[in-house]
């Protein structure tokens, strides 16, 4: 190659190849090892306190999930939209250049950062408002009922995660069924092919209705998993939740809500979901009402908290086909 070759534009091509090779090496060098996540988890475990939450970012760095067992961990699909009000401190394990700096500034009082290989561990002191009561956490204490005209039916069977109105077997039988290992609940299909089946759909849930209940849940709404309370309305009825709260510092009711994506996002068939109406009161004080539109997305409704006694939420609809509603209700106030 001549000296003039150094200004030869054809040199660009091998340089692109070289740059791509270097970029590949740099890219690989940013990938955390599983041991890095484990080391970060061990470190935070040693310093964990009540009121702490644990999470990781970016959300797709799924290897972090392996180290979250037995930790008060939560999902953080998008750091910029984080809601940290439930926690006093949040431990954020970060990689690929994403860390606590990507959280909303108004929720971060201070950050203490350590590094474990290619994982950063940020201890975030949370600022901003605080959750004083959480419907999902308090669900065992909530009274659930269905009201049709003058008739009120108590939904008082607790299956371990939620309240059921309809129990096809006796409560004791149902409880025993729920505690039976899965393999023993199934019977073998006599046809060749070794498929296992249940006798009927009711048996799968030990005689409990899989849809009509009020339970702790996690559903995909607004393209992200949401920890919420399954709250399926019934046409012609009011589904009532009576939530005893002891939160003197709480100033407002916050309800995040949405119908699940599979029933609202248009696929091959149009959605059948119809609007529902959620009302909230406390004692004699009406907190407000919200029409929950049959639209995709995770929405927020905020109402000032007045009155005294339990917070009562009531849900009605004219058509409950595919009414896969999930809500996350909290009472919040200044920290």
């Amino acid at each position: 190659m001549s000296r003039a070759g150094f200004t030869n534009p054809w040199l660009l091509l091998p340089l692109v190849g070289l740059a791509a090779g270097i970029a590949l090496a740099v890219q690989r060098a940013r990938v955390p090892a599983r041991a890095d996540w484990q080391a970060a988890a061990e470190a935070l475990r040693a310093d964990l306190q009540p009121g702490d939450g644990v999470t990781w970012t970016p959300y797709w760095a799924g290897e972090a999930r392996l180290v979250l067992h037995d930790l008060p961990a939560f999902h953080l699909p998008d750091p910029a939209e984080a809601d940290l009000a439930r926690y006093d401190r949040v431990w954020l394990m970060g990689a690929f250049g994403v860390d606590a700096d990507d959280l909303p500034a108004d929720q971060v009082a201070s950050v203490d950062r350590r590094t474990f290989g290619r994982v950063t561990l940020d201890r975030v002191q949370v600022a901003g408002e605080k959750v004083y009561a959480d419907l999902r956490a308090d669900l065992e204490a909530v009274r659930v009922s269905r009201v049709r005209g003058a008739k009120t039916e108590a939904c008082d069977f607790w299956d371990g995660i939620g309240w059921h109105c309809t129990v096809r077997r006796s409560p004791d039988d149902t409880r025993r069924c729920l505690a039976t290992p899965i393999a023993q609940q199934l019977r073998r299909d006599p046809r060749p092919g070794r498929r296992l089946i249940e006798p009927n759909p009711w048996a799968r849930h030990c005689g409990l209705d899989a849809w009509i209940n009020v339970s702790r849940d996690v559903r995909v709404i607004g393209e992200a998993p949401r920890r919420c309370v399954w709250y399926h309305p019934r046409a012609g009825e009011t589904v009532r939740l009576e939530w005893p709260v002891d939160a003197p510092k709480a100033e407002r009711l916050v309800v995040d809500y949405g119908f699940t994506d599979p029933v609202t996002v248009a696929r091959n068939t149009p959605s059948k979901v119809q609007p529902a109406t959620l009302t909230a009161r406390r004692g004699d004080a009406a907190l407000g009402a919200r029409v929950i539109e049959a639209a995709p997305g995770w929405h927020r409704w905020t109402a000032p908290l007045t009155g005294a006694g339990p917070v009562v939420l009531e849900l009605t609809t004219t058509d409950h086909r595919d009414a896969h509603l999930c809500i996350d209700a909290t009472l919040r106030g200044p920290r």
Partner: peptide, 10 residues
């Protein structure tokens, strides 16, 4: 485990 019965439940 056998679900425990919260107060008011059955």
């Amino acid at each position: 485990a056998l679900p425990t019965i919260p107060p008011g439940g059955r």
